[in-house]
Simulated assay, not measured.
Amino acid sequence: MSAQPRTGPTARMTVDEFLAWTEGQPGRHELLNGEVFAMSPQRAVHARVKYRVHRALDRAILAAGVPCEMFPDGMVVRVDAETSFEPDALVRCGDRLADSAVEADAPVIVIEVVSPSTRHIDTGAKLMGYFQLSSVQHYLILDTERRTVIHHRRSTGDLIETRIAASGDLSLDPPGLTLAVAALFAEP
């Protein structure tokens, strides 16, 4: 998400109003507390890491044999009535979404690749927002400069555990996936 708000309507809006508005808009947008934010164009390194994440998640889901589906960026995650984000990747388990769906309800894993302009939002508003959703078990923030993953994991009660990994495997249970950190940053 860009640091520049208000590329669209000047009035605050709900997620439902936002989704109707975005259908006719070029580019990608997110809604935070009723305000529209334009998403900046991504850099090549960002796109490469997102691609690797998508591939790694697809492979991990297949290897684990779990009834889950990976979605690349573009699917909306509704946090509350006035906030929705489009993560760089997510995993959702259970019944398959309808082909016409634009929202991914009940994501289990949410992933953001950090950009210079989004670091404060990814580590602040999005961290707090995603964990408002009881379905979210893991929130991964990938730092392309440091080649590390900040893994926030739901624990018992209202605790969120954080691990920073530059190597090794990430255990994403539930739903039972394993991701090698090196595969997320390695050149093909």
Rank of each mutant, 00 (worst) to 15 (best):
M1I: 12
S2D: 01
S2Q: 07
A3P: 03
Q4F: 01
P5S: 05
R6G: 13
G8E: 07
P9W: 11
T10C: 10
A11S: 14
T14W: 07
T14C: 12
V15Y: 07
E17L: 04
L19M: 06
A20H: 14
A20C: 07
Q25A: 08
P26F: 08
R28M: 07
H29W: 09
L31A: 05
L32F: 08
G34C: 01
G34V: 01
P41Q: 03
A44V: 15
R48Y: 11
K50F: 10
Y51E: 15
A56P: 02
L57E: 10
R59V: 14
A60G: 02
A63S: 10
P72T: 00
D73L: 11
M75L: 15
R78T: 07
A81E: 08
E82K: 10
T83W: 01
D88M: 06
D88R: 01
A89N: 13
L90S: 02
R92S: 04
C93D: 10
L97P: 07
L97R: 05
D99C: 13
A101C: 12
V102F: 03
D105K: 12
P107Q: 01
I109P: 02
I109F: 01
E112R: 02
V114D: 10
V114H: 06
S115N: 00
P116G: 09
H120C: 02
A125G: 02
K126A: 08
K126S: 04
K126D: 03
K126N: 02
L127I: 05
M128A: 14
M128E: 12
G129L: 02
G129V: 00
Q132W: 15
V136L: 14
V136I: 03
Q137F: 13
L140V: 13
L142A: 06
E145G: 14
R146Y: 11
I150C: 15
H151N: 04
H152E: 09
R154P: 06
T156M: 13
L159R: 15
L159H: 11
L159M: 14
E161S: 11
A165Y: 10
S167R: 08
A180F: 06
V181W: 03
V181A: 04
A183E: 15
F185A: 04
P188I: 05
